[in-house]
Design a protein around this nucleic acid. Structure first.
Lengths: 347, 347
DNA sequence: CGCATTTCAGTTAGCGCTAACACTACGTCG
DNA sequence: CGACGTAGTGTTAGCGCTAACTGAAATGCG
């Protein structure tokens, strides 16, 4: 299915041309030494205003663009950060990536990404290696995963590296949203509605976020001296939530369910609808993430919001500190916020 | 909220060390010239097996990693591609990004991203410029936007550039999913269910995909000699779909609605539920995108699936062709696939 | 055996840039 | 008025690598 180029809408031909202009070319045109041009371009060292003007005019005219490779070669700094991202459309990781990219660009860094399909020890190692070959100055690993944490334990010591959303015991600075506290808040919210207990649809066991959310839920129940029902485990997908919902729908005394993320909550809602279980009339349901759709689920979903822009910003900040040689601490938490909607609304 | 480093779980200190080993260091250790090492590393030129062994051992021992900057400086090739991505969690663009990254990495390219908040002419220009400063060899613009198309019209001619999902009349090769055909298929599907017409909740007017989907819907109705209802316009968000749903719920003769994406369809479903309009009993609803959640909407949503991995792969292919100096044609289409679920199910 | 070719290795130059230093012109100040 | 800073500019070296050439030894072959 290819419409070939037609006159009038023809694809422009790429012209490599002779060569990009260099400092020397600009210098020649402006009648100065290449060093003066360098000083103007980098605003390093004093230059007479009229000389600067001449140089700038030549830069403009020739369309001069500094050669990053040459600059990186001599300075040893590439101006690029690497991000190891999980290849998924999960709301959290994707949002974090944009948060990081924004913060980095504001500070003049470029961002190279390397996505990882399955977050195993080797694949993350490969990703890090691949980024190092791109001469990144520092690396951020989006690693909400247990194996990722292990991979980080083997992380190279000779490049600044920080992790976001995981790596509990990894020997690198880690930033994450306070999953434990978020889960605690949801559970408290559900209990405050008068329920005797809260069921939990957990995320995959090998995700740290899933573990923390589960722990928050469990310890809150225990703190109230309540019975802790067996968890139903899903894989973050709506499908697994749906299956969990079918398993739960029949349970006696099922009044409140906390799903470890919104997607599974969606599947849960669907299964309950099919089973004739009404939300919120018969059962209260809450999720985690506050995806943009959550407010329009049927019914709108009570959930926990995470500020991923902030997460990205602060993660970048950690890396910056690390690159400057600072310590950056070990573990940083960003608070989560409970968002109450109809799925836990009045009966 | 910072737990400071404690003994036993302390953050490793970053050691810049003296210097990364260079070709010369490896050469010294292996007792050969740096050129021989270069030949071994790049597998260019013949080297005696035992010499190669010695070199490889030295490479291993020193942890030698080629300096990309130096290599790029001398070869003029950076091995990096740039992707201009829309900063959004919209399913399509995010998936496309991963598709591209995958394909690029398989071919040995690194990927630098530059996200754009509002796809205006200047911001895309800035993004392209920012990537060029990172010395990318080619650029892919994920530009499902009308203004993006205009920005591409002003794209620089001296760097290979292709677009995905938009840029209708742009002077660059463009690849996109066949939105028109997808919309046509949905509409035909709804008409085949016996409806006298199909209503449409459109996407933002300045998105090309929205335009194509609307055109596919409109021309299908016209082709059948049917009345074309006024479109209700949304902004892709569930909220706007919800509002559209409230506006539509009262309409007389409302039997079938085609929403330009799944998120809006979700809002639509929610609004219908609140208004007591049953889907599929009273009204049939279809969406576009097939987000992972769509199968678990309430009811599961009939929609149009797009293969974004394929889109990424083929887009990268276009860029490769362009970088090789080829023409790459003007406009390429990837077919879309109708997925029928309960929201247009039997009554 | 003589000469051409191939194999394997080394030498040299230079990519475009910045760091470091050198030089000039002009104050400033004791 | 000479010593000394400072502004403004130039010169030089070298970052680590590959392209291109050079050279020596081994090989082919009529």
């Amino acid at each position: 299915m290819v419409e070939r180029t037609k006159p009038g809408e023809q694809a422009r031909t790429f012209l490599p041309g002779p060569r990009q202009p260099s400092l020397a070319d600009v210098a020649g045109m402006a009648g100065v030494s290449h060093m003066t041009v360098s000083r103007v371009v980098n605003e390093s060292g004093p230059v007479r205003p009229e000389t600067r003007e001449r140089v700038l005019a030549a830069v403009q005219k020739l369309g001069y663009r500094p050669n990053t490779a040459a600059r990186a070669l001599v300075t040893g700094r590439s101006g690029t950060l690497g991000v190891v991202a999980l290849e998924s459309n999960l709301y959290g990781p994707a949002s974090t990536l944009y948060g990081i990219e924004n913060a980095a660009r504001e500070s003049g860094y470029g961002v190279a990404i390397c996505s990882v399909t399955r977050p195993g020890r080797t694949s993350i190692g490969d990703a890090v290696e691949s980024l190092r070959r791109q001469a990144v100055e520092g690396i951020i690993v989006i690693a909400p995963h247990v194996t990722a944490g292990r991979a980080l334990a083997a992380a190279p010591a000779d490049i600044p590296l920080v992790a976001v959303g995981g790596g509990e015991s990894a020997p690198v600075p880690v930033l994450s949203v306070d999953q434990y506290d978020g889960a605690r808040r949801v559970t408290e919210h559900l209990l405050a509605l008068g329920h005797r207990t809260v069921w939990h649809v957990a995320g995959p066991e090998d995700w740290l976020e899933a573990r923390d959310r589960e722990r928050g839920w469990r310890e809150t129940l225990e703190g109230h001296g309540l019975r802790v029902p067996a968890v139903v485990r899903g894989d973050w997908s709506p499908r697994s939530g749906y299956e969990a919902g079918r398993a739960l729908a029949g349970k006696r005394g099922l009044k409140a369910v906390f799903s470890a993320n919104d997607q599974m909550a969606l599947g849960l809602l669907r299964a309950f609808t099919e089973a004739g279980v009404r939300v919120p009339e018969d059962v209260h349901v809450a999720g985690f993430d506050d995806v943009p759709e959550a407010a329009y689920f049927n019914p709108p979903l009570t959930t926990v919001r995470q500020d991923f822009i902030e997460v990205g910003r602060r993660t970048f900040g950690l890396l910056e500190e690390r690159m400057a040689g600072g310590d950056a601490g070990a573990r940083h938490l960003v608070p989560a916020e409970l968002v109450v909607r109809e799925s836990t609304g009045p009966r």
